[in-house]
């Protein structure tokens, strides 16, 4: 079982941040993201970054997870920096290479955008690191609920999301098992041209599909046997209760953020 949780980036823990109600965690994240998008001063941004780091420390997330989380946006960040450095004019000229110049406005704005991007990623990362994928989908399902009135089957969408999440690790395990079984029977996935390697994957894909369909069938049967009906109102084993503690955290965060936001430093 423990193996299936590793999907996504969830890091088990016992900190306050881990235990916060997932719905409120998502709500708080959205608030923070909106504020991040609208703030305009370096001092406020710095305060947000500091706050993010503080939360990471509170959640006891090792530093390397933070770096690993930032890696995927590195390329976008570099790209943005280049654009801003070379194509924004204004302020004093810092560097001149032929007819290309880097001016101070561009540097200031570019760094601001990139820092903001990092802050956005860090806050989102914090939520995915401290919330199980299942609670996350439940939380999101909750916010989808109002969409029922425009015809979106919110409960079912949430169910589809959590079932898919449940099966990703299973399928990954299965593909590994198949690969090993075929390796044991002399298959060669490693040597030869790319074309050969790609062709050697065909006998892997067929049984994966077969077993995915078989599992889907079995699951549907098991769910029906336990009286799952589309459109029926469902209750949950783990009630999603919001404790006073959760409200207090939310209130605190909102206050803190508005103070930083309004007054800068």
């Amino acid at each position: 079982m423990s193996r299936s949780i590793i999907l996504g980036q969830y890091l088990p823990g016992e900190s306050l941040i881990h235990r916060l109600n997932p719905r409120l965690k998502i709500l708080t994240l959205v608030l923070i993201l909106i504020l991040l998008f609208t703030l305009e001063t370096y001092s406020a941004l710095a305060a947000f970054l500091a706050f993010a780091l503080l939360l990471f420390a509170l959640a006891k997330v090792p530093f390397r997870y933070l770096l690993r989380g930032l890696r995927p946006v590195l390329f976008i960040a570099l790209f943005a920096l280049v654009i801003y450095f070379f194509f924004t004019s204004g302020g004093i000229v810092l560097v001149r290479i032929g007819f290309i110049t880097v001016e101070s406005e561009g540097v200031i704005e570019g760094l601001f955008i990139v820092t903001r991007l990092a802050a956005l990623v860090l806050f989102s990362l914090l939520v995915t690191l401290t919330t199980t994928p299942l609670s996350l989908t439940h939380g999101m399902g909750y916010f989808l609920k109002p969409l029922r009135y425009v015809g979106l089957p919110a409960e079912e969408v949430a169910m589809i999301m959590s079932v898919s999440l449940r099966f990703i690790p299973t399928l990954m395990e299965e593909s590994q098992r198949l690969m090993r079984a075929q390796l044991a029977r002399g298959a060669d996935f490693e040597t030869g041209s790319i074309f050969r390697k790609a062709r050697s994957l065909v006998p892997l894909i067929v049984p994966l599909f077969v077993s995915a369909f078989r599992r889907a069938d079995e699951l549907a049967l098991a769910m029906e046997a336990r009286c799952y009906r589309i459109g029926a109102k469902r209750t949950r084993m783990h009630e999603d209760v919001i404790l006073p503690r959760d409200w207090a955290v939310l209130a605190f965060v909102i206050m803190l953020l508005f103070v930083t936001y309004t007054f800068g430093f």
Binding site: R177, R180, A181, Q182, P207, S211
Partner: peptide, 9 residues
């Protein structure tokens, strides 16, 4: 493997 018939393809 254990339960090798699950790996037929």
């Amino acid at each position: 493997f254990q339960i090798p018939e699950e790996q037929f393809f």
